Simulated scan of single mutants.
Amino acid sequence: MSETGSSNGYFVSDLHLFSSRSTGDLILPELRQKARQTHTVVLGGDIFDFKWSTHESDEKSVEKAIEWIEDLLDQNEGCEYHYILGNHDSRPEFVKELIALASRHPNFTWHRYFARLDNCLFLHGDVADGPLDHARLDSRREKFERKKKKTGLWHVAYDMAIHARLHRLVVLSIREMVVLRRVKEYVESIGHGLSEGVTDVYFGHTHVELDGIQYQGLCFHNGGAAIRGMKFRIVETTLGAPASVRA
């Protein structure tokens, strides 16, 4: 890895770790290897799934999540790590631990909504579900987090839906063009659109893999989801070393 110029960075989202349907643990060796070789890793939300966690308590889920992140940070102390919240991992108790984690590791930063690095914008993507302003996004996430963690027969029913590919059918019913339009409207509303130098947008949430789709001047990337029966990949990015962080 060169110390200057452009090289590979990586974006990963929607591992849904702790859910019984997640295949995220299978990609961990690859993610660790890439972290050792790169200068920037962006974790794009829903890395953990607290709602569907199989751990016995929320406290245990948060504890294990922080251990997982610290293990990744240990792979490369020279790498910059950025964590963007998603709708499955935005719980206040987890955010509190992320704040503490950032104080212990100067190469770790967490973001509530998005991260702008060089000419790339990274976000989770749940802005595509409703109004684009942050206040109402927070409200949707809070309502989601207030729902009780699913247990018992809920897991069995959802496993059956995954096996029958019903989850895939629901995802594919969302027209990709509508999602891209709404994400584009959002990036423009926060002042990080084409006119501000953004060329590439990386997002997750929709669970639909997109490999460099061009739409109205922007290039969109989505790695899919690490859920059984769905496509997933760690997405490669081109960023400066180090990447320039813009608010």
Rank of each mutant, 00 (worst) to 15 (best):
H111A: 05
R21T: 13
F18T: 09
L98Q: 02
D126S: 11
H111N: 02
D25I: 15
R91M: 12
L98Y: 06
E77H: 14
G125L: 01
E59R: 12
V95I: 15
Y113C: 06
G44F: 07
K96N: 14
L101Q: 09
L101C: 11
L31K: 09
N119V: 02
V95Q: 07
E56G: 15
D126A: 08
I84E: 03
S90A: 13
Y10E: 02
Q75D: 08
F18Q: 10
S90P: 00
A65G: 02
K60R: 14
T23P: 02
I66A: 02
Y10Q: 02
L73V: 03
L72I: 13
R21Y: 07
F18D: 06
L72K: 11
R91A: 15
K34M: 13
F48K: 01
T40E: 12
D58T: 10
A102L: 01
F108I: 04
P29V: 00
L15G: 03
L28M: 15
F94R: 07
L101M: 12
K96G: 12
I27T: 07
H111D: 01
E93W: 12
F108P: 11
C79W: 09
V62W: 14
G45H: 07
Y81K: 10
L121E: 05
G86I: 02
I27D: 06
N87E: 05
L28T: 11
K96I: 12
W110S: 07
Y113N: 12
N119E: 08
Q33L: 15
H111V: 04
L31I: 06
D129W: 04
E67P: 01
R91F: 13
D46W: 09
G125F: 00
S20D: 11
S20F: 02
W52T: 09
G125C: 02
H111P: 06
K34Y: 11
E56P: 13
I84W: 08
N76S: 00
L85H: 06
I69Q: 01
K60P: 00
E97L: 04
K34G: 04
F48P: 00
E30W: 01
A100K: 15
H124S: 04
K64S: 05
L26V: 13
E70T: 09
K51F: 13
S103Y: 03
A35S: 12
V12L: 08
E56K: 14
F11K: 04
C120P: 07
L43Y: 00
F114E: 14
I84A: 04
P29H: 00
V42P: 02
L101F: 08
H16C: 05
R32M: 14
L85C: 06
H39L: 12
S22E: 00
R104F: 05
Q75V: 08
R104D: 10
H16E: 04
S53A: 03
W110T: 06
K64T: 03
Q33F: 15
H124W: 03
E80D: 15
S90N: 10
S103A: 10
H55W: 15
G45A: 06
L28R: 14
L43E: 00
R32A: 13
S57N: 04
Q37M: 11
L26H: 11
W52R: 14
I69P: 00
Q75H: 05
D74W: 11
H88F: 08
T40W: 11
F18L: 09
L101D: 03
H39K: 15
S61I: 07
I47N: 03
S57G: 08
A35N: 04
L72Q: 13
D49H: 01
C120W: 12
N76Q: 03
